[in-house]
Design a protein around this nucleic acid. Structure first.
Lengths: 214, 214
DNA sequence: CAGGCACTACGTATTTCTACGTAGTTAAAA
DNA sequence: TTTTAACTACGTAGAAATACGTAGTGCCTG
């Protein structure tokens, strides 16, 4: 197997230095190039489209989805590993949807990082332990929920939920959204039915812990 | 001014490498030594008690308070900068109480890191912009709250709040705590008065975002 | 076009929550 | 010892939330 070229895109100084330092010493890696922004990454990728890209979840200048599209214009199947700082489930989902090949937590070990790069270079996928455990748990959770997998909320429901989380009562929300208080309560009702939740407290907790609200 | 010795304590590989890489290149720094755990840090500190310590907020093997005490046994006024990954206000408060000299966010720049080390080496304090901004905001918030600074909750109140967050109603909580439902409502009432909060939703949000509950 | 989904709205009844009080006991602090 | 704080408990009243329905309109899709 040929040695692997790696492109790092990370706008935080310390972390970028850390990645470069570790990967420079990795035997499987031949070249390491580090940039700060999404724009620079795309530029660099044009010059060496056979690289494995390591991208920070909070990369400056783009979200993962757009970044992937830009990379795909250069080369149809870019190899991208996302490194994340948070345990935000939404971000993971978005990244997977965007088609990334790996997803590691910021606190991964040198070993995890290296093996992930090797796997992705081979065309496989790579997830850090905590991420794959989390995915497994979610899968079980979903299955438990009577099989109905997509408990996605509608726009309006999300809107209402957001206002509930912000501490507004139903009448207040009604005024804000220019709808009837009853309608707000219908939305509350539907939210709770969908989420198998029985009161406001649990609803707020759900929103803060399992959605991008908050 | 003499060059500064730096001790790094960070259990995450990438970040530790990053710090070492950056500080090795810093002109003001003469020596850099990096360890993984609190225990190792104390050991290393005994050998060079004139070092500035850079400690990860999630350092393995100790909390900040105990770590500071251990360092103080070696040398009465250890110079410690905490690097944090989160925006957790509680952790900041605990760190300040423990007597650390600096507090930086993980996403600080190379410049911020270097100048913080210089400041702390001089015996001054150093906080990253976001941290000092946040402290300023909190100060204003506190001032607004009619001067009453300590809005700490009692044990019982914390207990009740926890159960509210878990989605239990007042009657349920009453049964769990073997007290009257009215008493639970009194606690709710007191909680909301203390926190200037007007309903359950805001209470849950407060608990999840600003306390260790959840 | 028919069917499904989202959004809207209402009725009724019950439960829970919130506001604003009072007050006894106990344990710790001044 | 006096005082303070915490925990307990209750009354009354009104506001809000929850449970259980029904139903019209618009939009998109098969």
């Amino acid at each position: 197997m040929n040695k692997i070229k790696v492109l790092i895109a990370e706008n935080f100084d310390v972390y970028r230095h850390g990645l470069r330092s570790i990967l420079s010493e990795a035997p499987a890696v031949s070249e390491v190039y580090a940039v700060r922004s999404a724009k620079d990454l795309v530029q660099a990728y044009k010059k060496s489209p056979d690289s494995v890209c390591i991208v920070s979840s909070n990369i400056e200048g783009s979200n993962i989805h757009d970044l992937m599209q830009r990379l795909e214009k250069v080369q149809p199947a870019p190899k991208v590993i996302v490194l994340t700082y948070s345990t935000d489930v939404n971000h993971l989902n978005q990244s997977l949807k965007a088609g990334v090949n790996g997803y590691l937590m910021k606190n991964c070990t040198t070993g995890e990082l290296e093996s992930a790069i090797k796997e992705v270079a081979k065309g496989k996928q790579a997830f850090s332990k905590s991420v794959s455990q989390m995915m497994a748990n979610k899968y079980v959770d979903q299955a438990k929920k009577t099989g109905s997998v997509s408990n996605k909320l509608t726009k309006r429901e999300t809107e209402v939920l957001k206002l509930i989380v912000e501490g507004h009562t139903s009448p207040e929300i009604a005024k804000m959204l220019f709808i009837s208080p009853r309608t707000v309560e219908t939305h509350r009702s539907n939210l709770m039915n969908k989420l198998k939740i029985k009161n406001t407290a649990a609803l707020v907790r759900y929103a803060l812990e399992k959605t991008e609200i908050g």
